[in-house]
Design a protein around this nucleic acid. Structure first.
Length: 244
DNA sequence: GTTGAGCGTT
């Protein structure tokens, strides 16, 4: 298909990776392909996306076959308006071509000789701080998302929590009592209503509500929600045979 | 469903 990176990185080692930043979260490799392919031979395009959400991280890697083409693409597509946003194209710091950069001979991604007056603020070049090795990498990773990590952490925690909560299910006793007697049409297996998530989530996600110093009343107070018998009663054995 | 400095693989 037109999709790149379907089989991982190509066996090509003589490629020049370009880093495309400031692209929209909706921009895909297929969208960048026609753009970069016009200025050179694009051998591969890879867009790092979140492994959990699957959404684009806002940047992509474009591999060119030749340096001159990559250089041209950088100069041409750097600042190109894509999907309503001005993308930033520059040579990747990490990759096959990174060796060349570390070699000491750094290819000028955008020769300041151009003096291209652009609305963009003069960003620092990677060559200005690549001396920090990769330890600065962690820095940007943390400070990468400020207002987003709030969402990510929250949503990740929820899905992670519910994933563990699945072990809850119903007790084997409940299963035996009902067994096959439960009509799958109304028993809806072990699916709980979204309210169950919120109740449990709130109760479990509120450490401040519960005193960390004491938890005796916890065992004394039977949690009606965590008791499968509760559901059993809720299922109302009397109405076990609803009018189908 | 969101966000916007940065550097990569299902």
């Amino acid at each position: 298909m037109s999709r790149f990176g379907r089989s991982g990185p190509p066996p090509i080692r003589d490629t020049y990776s370009l880093l495309v930043l400031n692209i929209t979260f909706r921009t895909t490799a297929d969208d960048l392909f026609p753009l970069f392919d016009k200025y050179g031979e694009v051998v591969d395009i890879y867009i790092p996306r979140d492994r959990r959400t699957g959404d684009s991280r806002g940047f992509a890697f474009v591999r060119y076959k030749y340096e001159d083409e990559a250089q041209k693409a950088v100069d041409r597509l750097d600042g190109k308006l894509v999907d309503g946003r001005e993308i930033m194209v520059q040579f990747a710091k990490y990759g096959p071509n990174a060796e060349r950069i570390n070699k000491g001979r750094i290819v000028e991604p955008v020769p300041r000789s151009r003096g291209r007056s652009r609305s963009r603020s003069p960003r620092r070049r990677y060559r200005d701080d690549y001396r920090d090795d990769y330890r600065d990498r962690d820095y940007r990773r943390r400070s990468r998302s400020r207002s987003r990590d709030r969402y990510t952490r929250d949503r990740y925690r929820e899905r992670d929590y519910r994933r563990r909560s699945r072990s809850r299910s119903y007790s084997p006793d409940d299963y035996k009592k009902h067994g096959r007697d439960r009509s799958p049409s109304r028993s809806r297996s072990r699916s709980y209503s979204p309210d169950d998530y919120k109740r449990r989530g709130r109760d479990s996600a509120s450490p401040a509500s519960r005193s960390p110093s004491r938890s005796p009343p916890r065992k004394a107070s039977p949690s009606p929600e965590k008791s499968p018998v509760r559901r059993n009663d809720d299922r109302s054995p009397r109405s076990r045979s609803p009018s189908t």
